[in-house]
Amino acid sequence: MSEEPKPRRRQARGERRIAQLLQAAANVFCANGYTASSTNAIAREAHVSPGTLYQYFPNKEAIALELGERLLHEMREAHGQAFVPENLALPLPELLDAVVDPMIEFNCANPAFLALMYGSDVPGRIAEEHDELHATLLTRVQEVIAHYAPTLSAEDRARTAGMTFAAFKGGLDLILAAPEGAERDATIAELKTLLLRYLSPLVEKSAEKPTEGYAEKPTEGYAEKPVQVPAER
């Protein structure tokens, strides 16, 4: 008889153990922050011995790297749900729902993301990948603003995107601190109201301006729908 199922079972057990250790690490990082966490604390949280932990990860940094890679992958998928071409056809309030909801859902489901990404001693590779993700997100926000307010200059667009993103991050901190249920839902609604009241005047002002001198160019993130940006002079 074939012995193939045994290695597969061992591999499956190993994957379950890794998932267990990573979840324990996420809990510890959330509670203590990355810098103050230790492999012993992670092992205790996972209900395993330090020796068992070291069979899978040589140190805390290796755990953080694996956890960070997985969280960043899931975060990119959340971006994929939020920034899709068809969302640009929505009115601004519905667009905010479509973009903000997946981002909030991810962060509420993965509170370790912020604890790990913003740790003072976070491994350099995680910090670099997070910075790349942040830059990509800002670019996507600028593309959305370019669609809804095509007469804004590149400088104004970048400034508006930075302010929008800063407002979102500030609101996200309050959302994560709020108890689940009615209070958290109310905080989410308040954040959307803030963003809408900030962006609506820019969109309305842009709509009042003539678009002559502006050329339609597709942006990289929304290749299926042309976005109006200032033509080169």
Rank of each mutant, 00 (worst) to 15 (best):
residue 4 E to N: 09
residue 12 A to N: 03
residue 13 R to C: 06
residue 17 R to Q: 14
residue 19 A to F: 07
residue 24 A to C: 06
residue 25 A to M: 03
residue 28 V to W: 01
residue 29 F to E: 01
residue 33 G to Y: 07
residue 36 A to S: 11
residue 37 S to E: 04
residue 37 S to P: 08
residue 40 N to M: 13
residue 42 I to K: 01
residue 42 I to G: 01
residue 46 A to R: 00
residue 52 T to A: 07
residue 58 P to R: 13
residue 64 A to Q: 00
residue 72 L to I: 03
residue 73 H to T: 10
residue 81 Q to F: 09
residue 82 A to D: 02
residue 84 V to P: 00
residue 85 P to F: 05
residue 86 E to Y: 10
residue 86 E to A: 15
residue 87 N to M: 13
residue 91 P to V: 15
residue 95 L to Q: 13
residue 98 A to E: 10
residue 102 P to N: 09
residue 103 M to W: 06
residue 104 I to N: 02
residue 107 N to R: 10
residue 108 C to Y: 07
residue 109 A to N: 11
residue 115 A to E: 03
residue 117 M to E: 05
residue 123 P to Y: 06
residue 128 E to A: 09
residue 128 E to C: 04
residue 129 E to M: 07
residue 129 E to F: 02
residue 134 H to Y: 15
residue 136 T to E: 15
residue 141 V to Q: 02
residue 147 H to S: 09
residue 152 L to G: 07
residue 153 S to L: 02
residue 153 S to D: 05
residue 154 A to W: 09
residue 159 R to D: 14
residue 160 T to K: 05
residue 160 T to I: 12
residue 162 G to E: 14
residue 163 M to D: 11
residue 164 T to F: 11
residue 165 F to Q: 14
residue 165 F to T: 11
residue 166 A to G: 06
residue 175 I to Q: 02
residue 176 L to P: 00
residue 180 E to Y: 06
residue 185 D to I: 03
residue 186 A to P: 00
residue 188 I to C: 11
residue 191 L to C: 06
residue 194 L to K: 04
residue 194 L to D: 04
residue 196 L to D: 04
residue 197 R to F: 10
residue 199 L to Q: 01
residue 201 P to G: 02
residue 204 E to S: 09
residue 206 S to F: 04
residue 212 E to V: 10
residue 215 A to N: 08
residue 216 E to P: 13
residue 217 K to A: 10
residue 217 K to H: 14
residue 226 P to I: 08
residue 229 V to P: 00
residue 232 E to Y: 13
